[in-house]
Every structure is written in C-alpha cells, then in structure tokens.
Write a protein that binds this DNA or RNA. Sequence first.
DNA 1: AAATCTTTTGAGCGATCGTTCTAAAATGAC
DNA 2: GTCATTTTAGAACGATCGCTCAAAAGATTT
Lengths: 195, 195
Amino acid sequence: MRRGRPPTFDRAAALAAATRLFWQNGYEATSIHDLTDAMGIRPGSLYAAFGDKKALFNEVIEAYGRSPAGEFVWAAMKREPTAHDAFHRILLDAAAMYTDPETPAGNLLCSAAAADVEVAVYMRDLRNASVDTFEKRLTTARDEGEIPATADPRKLAAYFTAVMHGMSQRARDGATAAELTDTAELAMAAWPKAA
Amino acid sequence: MRRGRPPTFDRAAALAAATRLFWQNGYEATSIHDLTDAMGIRPGSLYAAFGDKKALFNEVIEAYGRSPAGEFVWAAMKREPTAHDAFHRILLDAAAMYTDPETPAGNLLCSAAAADVEVAVYMRDLRNASVDTFEKRLTTARDEGEIPATADPRKLAAYFTAVMHGMSQRARDGATAAELTDTAELAMAAWPKAA
DNA sequence: AAATCTTTTGAGCGATCGTTCTAAAATGAC
DNA sequence: GTCATTTTAGAACGATCGCTCAAAAGATTT
C-alpha cells in the first residue's frame, strides 16, 4: 500500500474552491492566502499538490473546460441537428450558465483577467478558439445548404463570439437570466436567410 | 506670481501616460512604479498632483469619458437624425475606436478590470449606464414611430450593450477593425422592422 | 542677500505578494 | 519498536505593493 502520511484534503474539492475564487476575482487578485483559506490547506500542501499558482490556474482552466459551464458550446454542437438550433441553444445556454446562482457570474475565461502575459495569452487563445469552432460549424451548414451560399461563416462566427463574450460581461455587471435570454433571441436575428 | 518651485512636468501629458497604462494593463496590474516611470515623475510628485492611486484612476476615467474614445456614443446620439443611424454609427465607431492603433485595444471601461471593490463598482455602473442611455433613445424612437410599438426598448438596449462590450473583448483579443465592422453590420439585423 | 513657498528627490515605511523550508505528525514496511 | 516515506503546520524568505517623509532644489517676495 501507499506509504507515508495520507493527504487530509480532497483534491477535487480543493480545485473546485480554487476555481470559484479565480472565477470570481481573477488570476492575480486571488492570492495564495485566499486560496489556502478557501481550500482549507497550508501553502506547503498547495505547492506539493498543484505545483505553483500558475500550474494551479491551468488545472482550474482545464477542469472548467470539462465542466458544463465550459463545455456547453461543444455539447450544443453535437446534440443539435441544425446549425441554427446549435447556435440558438448555445446563446440560450450561455444566458442560463452565465447567471447560474451556484457559480460566479459570466464565463471564467472572460472574467478572470490576468496581467501575467503567459496566462493572458493562454486565455486569449482559448477565447479565440470559439471563433474557429463556430466557423467550422457554419461552413458545414453552408456546404449542406442550411444557410445560403452568400453567408459568410467567418463573419458570423466572429459576431456570435462577440455576442457571447458580451453576454458574459453583462452577466458580470448584474444582468439577469431573463435579460440575457432576450439578448440571445435578438442576436439570432442575424441568422442568414435565403436571399 | 505663483511662488515656490514650479512643476517640471505637464500634468495633462502625465495623465495621458497614466491612461494608456491603466487602459492597457488594468487597475491593479498597473503599479505606482509603472506609473511614475511612464509619467516621468517620482512618487512624491504623483501623490501631490493626483492624490492616491484611486484618485488618479478616477481622473483617468473622467478624462477618458470626455475623450473621443469615451464620448462617441453620446456624439452619435446627438448627430444622427434617426435612432437607426445612431446605433449604426455607434457600432461602426466602436469597431474603429476599439482597434485604433494609437490607443490600447478595446474600451477602457471594459478592459481595466479592477479587483478593488470601490473601483469595480464605479466602472460597472458606468458600463451599465449605456443600457439606460440606449433605452431612452429607443423609447423616443418608438414614441415617434421610427420603430414599431411592439419593439422593446429595454431588450434592444441590453442587446446593443452586450454587442458593444463583446466587440471590446474581441478587440482585446486581436480582432481587426474589418472584423469588428462586419460584426457591427451583422448586429444591426436585430433592428426592429415593421410587423 | 535673506526669507518664504512649492516641488522634486530618493530613501524607506509597513503590508502583502508568491514561494520555500524545517520540523512535527501520521502512515506502511521491516 | 524502528525506519522510511509522505503530508502536515507554520514560520519566514526576498520581492514588490501603495504610500510617506525629510531634505535638497528652484522659484518669487521682501
């Protein structure tokens, strides 16, 4: 059996506590002291279990990406039969997720602003990735004839990304689920129609 | 004449340098050391001229609000004859302003994330103010018959605010003026049409 | 020139930052 | 019981944070 003193804390629970803090306050504004307090451990344990602050944050981002709050975009892409339904679902889910009272408001990738260049680039790339994801789905929709050949997948992808990120900011600023749902419905007006 | 040793630095230029730093890096990520370096002064002079860091930031926000980058929304409201033209102009101007190579990307009020509660609330209120501003203009447009009576000024105002803030985020993430202009045009598809 | 007033300078304050280290505690192996 | 191993607790490291202060410097007034 495994030798040595056994750990006294739940690693997953500690990671969840760290996620909440980073999500709420951002990367630099969350101190190691804040983290150890919320995670119920001492600095030595944190560094032994997660490396350093940056490694912990990376792990938080990864776990977030696999959680419902970070995965709903891909989930909608898979489940919804048409591109229209997928984007509609994505925006409606965003309205609900970003205002979920169980979690901090908005999208972690949009909220947890980081001054550290390495972390900032990492997060920016993840945010930009949604443009490519959206574009691919829209290109498929155009090729399959769901949207007109004149529609521009890249432009639409950039637009929906901007709306989604704007909704995150609105949620951070106190927008309700109802308000964001209305915004989502209005945003769908840009969906390309047959000429 | 005024007695004592005369100041050796241009207050407005120093404020502009501080604005650029806060805009680029945010409130807490900009240190007094960064500021004194960029402004070409020593801490004592900064505190004598501007109070403390928070007061300097407040002054930066105020100056920003009177600058083209902060005032273009109200300018469009005044100059454009119709609400449609005003919102169209606002989004197009945002696309240009947020990607102006002469200034940091995005909107200072969206970019300069602050952990300090007082500063965060101050900025959040300023961001939220645009919803009310938009709503008033849209209500007028509805009363005057420019948009249908069934249109909801509040929902539209929230939508345009989300788009604008999303465009700021996109600009921070490297979106070009052309991409944001396309986003602006697509966003106008939500403009209410006669039923 | 002397006195007065204001600004500049640069050191340095206490607090907090991320991080490391040492010693005690708690386990399995022998 | 003794040793090896791992985690714990808590002090403490150097660096940086926002900010202050005493002394020097540069100007006007008398």
